[in-house]
Structure formats: structure tokens, C-alpha cells
Amino acid sequence: MLMTGLAIATLACGVMAVRARRLLSSAVWLAACSAFLAVLLYRLGAYEVAVIELSVGAGLVTVLFVFAINIAGDESIGLPSVIPRGLTWLLCLAPLAVIALSIALRIPAGIDALVLPSLPSGMPSAISSDAPPAAATFVNVLWQDRALDVVVQVVLIYAGVLGLLGLLAEKEGPLQHSAAREVAARRDRDLLTMETAARREEAET
């Protein structure tokens, strides 16, 4: 019952994050969604992921959102979406319809389709069935079996630092100069057109 409530709360917060008109409200709803998801993950036994989700998803990302909204402004765009609303709903509700059908018809395309394939028994891995249970810890799996993932994470964090520098950059880039030049050229063209029209009118009179 608790797990069901947590799942529903996570989903409801996600919906509210999208439906909220103000960006700041969206960021707060997203943080609540992360917090509920962290509790859900903890109850599922994924303690490490739960802690990381709570600290990163509900903490760091929310702070970044608030920071970005503070810089860029809480601008709410109430214009209609680019894609027709009916097609949008169709694309979003199609996965829900598939899972509802799979549950209703007892087709094993639900959770069974998502499980990870079992490793061969001869594979020298900490997670294989031959390995002792003490070796199959999160630390061993992450640092030994998924060492490449750790390297990728380091590279990603470095890229993130560069992205954050871009977020904090105050200097005008070359794009702004070219955009300003384009605006000035458009203004000159408009002035020329107006002058030509005025001369024509004078000539006619």
C-alpha cells in the first residue's frame, strides 16, 4: 500500500511539474517528484541510487533550476504547442495503452521485458551466480565490472563543469554580434523602403 502511494505521489508530482504555469513551481514539483522517487527506490532496496537521487535530483538539480530561472526570468509561454494537441496526447498515451493491455491480457511484455539478461555462469564476474555473495556489492560492481562507466561519468562531469561555465558566462559571444548586425541591416532595409515609398508619393503629387 505504501509503495502504491509513493508511486502515485511520484507520478502526480511529475504531472504537476509539467502543468504548473510558473517555472519556479515546476522546479519545486520536480524536486518533490525526485524526493518521492528516492523513497520509492529506497523501499525497493536500491539504497545507493536512492541517496544519489535525493541529493542530486532533489538537491543539486533543483538549485540549478532555481539559479537558471533567476538568471533567465520566470517567463511562462502560454502559446499553443508546435505539434497538434491531439497528436501529442496520442503519442503520450500510446505507451500507457500498451502496458494496460499487456497487464490485462497477461502478456509477459511488462516487467519481464525490462529485466536484464542473465550472465553466463562461466563469466568471471562479481555478479555471476558462481561468485560469492559478499563480492556482489554495489561498490564491487561499480568499480570492477563497470569501471568504464566510472570513466564516462568523470568525462561527463568535466563536460558539466564546462556547461556550468557557459551558464555563468557574461561575455557577449560572436552570435550576438552577428544577430545585432542582422537587426541593423533589417532596419536599414526598412528605412530604405520607407524612403523610396515617400519619394514615389512626392513624385506622384
Binding site: 536500491a46 545507493e48 541510487v49 544519489i52 536484464l116 562479481a126 555478479i127 556482489a136 556489492t137 554495489f138 564491487n140 560492481v141 561499480l142 565490472d145 563497470r146 562507466d149 561519468q153
Partner: peptide, 8 residues
């Protein structure tokens, strides 16, 4: 454990 490392 594998799922957790991938999730991280």
C-alpha cells in the same frame, strides 16, 4: 547491484 550501477 548491476541495475544500481547503471542507474547511477
Amino acid at each position: 547491484q548491476v541495475a544500481q550501477s547503471l542507474a547511477v
